[in-house]
């Protein structure tokens, strides 16, 4: 039939609808931006939602300081191309102020410390809605997440007491001091994101593509050697041909061995993949309900 919208176009339209709802229902939204593929898609959708006007809210990066250099370079270029405002909040500042204490031990990561930096930033800058690029297919605790996810004054998520979300009617009412997390990509899968990037011809950081890098193995994960993370006794670093499926904190983002050097290669690889993209993340491996526990605290 002639009047039939493909599934990817339907997902795009749904996400645009949600972004426009947020811009209209809230006073001060912000888009959480990591430089990863999901947030790149989010920026593209925000451009489409308000075109020919500019994106009417800033982007905010919660920076652990443990970045892939390629991601930061990419981030800055994208922000300037789009003409958006970028806010960077550093986990290091939260540590310096004594708001959080750095984890110790060889598996130390700043991943969970981001929550404090994020909540502090939301409070300080009085954001009342924060867009995230999370998808329900990523992880089981996310499967029950709403598009409009209410957070109390402590920034906490209460999975047992979520507002029912019916049709396309989104209830963004809240009390002072509370905020919402909004997830326009809820219904997208990893494959949808890649296909969209290909269809829209979007640039992505180079670490998504195959490259050679110093890698060592820990708990079955391939970790990149860097000034933040060194192999310890018994672990050995060597040059391997890898790529990354996510671009999170360097200390807990695992690489996969891959020769995929184009988007089309990546799509074929994702189609054949037998492990979820989060399967490569040490932060989710801590326990079976690691993500659920972090989300309740106010994580992304």
């Amino acid at each position: 039939m002639h009047y039939n919208l493909s599934h990817l176009k339907q997902l795009e339209s749904e996400a645009i609808f949600i972004m426009r709802e947020v811009a209209s229902q809230f006073d001060k939204p912000v888009l959480l931006f990591s430089g990863g593929k999901d947030s790149i898609v989010m920026v593209r959708l925000a451009q489409k939602a308000f075109w020919p006007a500019r994106i009417p809210f800033p982007l905010m990066h919660i920076d652990t300081g443990h970045n892939f250099a390629e991601t930061i370079e990419f981030r800055d270029k994208l922000v300037s191309d789009v003409g958006a405002e970028l806010i960077v909040k550093l986990v290091q500042d939260s540590i310096d102020k004594g708001r959080v204490v750095e984890e110790k031990g060889i598996n130390a990561s700043r991943n969970s410390l981001q929550t404090t930096t994020l909540l502090d930033a939301i409070e300080e800058l009085q954001f009342d809605a924060a867009f995230g690029g999370a998808r329900r297919d990523e992880e089981k605790a996310r499967a029950k997440e709403r598009f409009f996810s209410h957070r109390d004054e402590f920034g906490q998520w209460d999975p047992k007491n979520q507002r029912p979300e019916l049709w396309n009617l989104f209830n963004g009412r809240k009390n002072f001091g509370e905020h919402f997390r909004v997830f326009p990509l809820s219904n997208w899968t990893e494959m949808d994101v890649w296909q969209y990037i290909a269809a829209e011809n979007l640039d992505i950081p180079s670490i998504y593509f195959s490259h050679t890098r110093k890698i060592f193995e820990r708990h079955g994960m391939l970790l990149a050697e860097s000034s933040f993370l060194k192999p310890v006794h018994g672990e050995k670093s060597e040059d391997r041909v890898v790529r990354f499926r996510t671009v999170g904190d360097m200390t807990c983002t695992g690489a996969v061995e891959s020769i995929a050097s184009t988007l089309e290669d990546i799509i074929q690889e994702v189609a054949a993949a037998r492990v979820t993209e989060r399967g490569g993340r040490a932060d989710d491996k801590r326990s079976d309900s690691a993500m659920e526990d972090r989300k309740k605290q106010g994580y992304f």
């Binding site: 599934h7 329900r136 297919d137 089981k140 605790a141 499967a143 029950k144 999975p159 047992k160 979520q162 809820s186 219904n187 899968t189 494959m191 949808d192 079976d288 309900s289 659920e292």
Partner: peptide, 26 residues
């Protein structure tokens, strides 16, 4: 069965969304 409470009680307590695709449809 997504959430911890559900796995412990062996029941589903909220709407959860799942995704799959075949060559014809998502």
């Amino acid at each position: 069965d997504g959430l911890k409470a559900e796995r412990e009680q062996g029941i589903t307590i909220d709407v959860a969304y799942r995704y799959f695709a075949t060559p014809k449809r998502k």
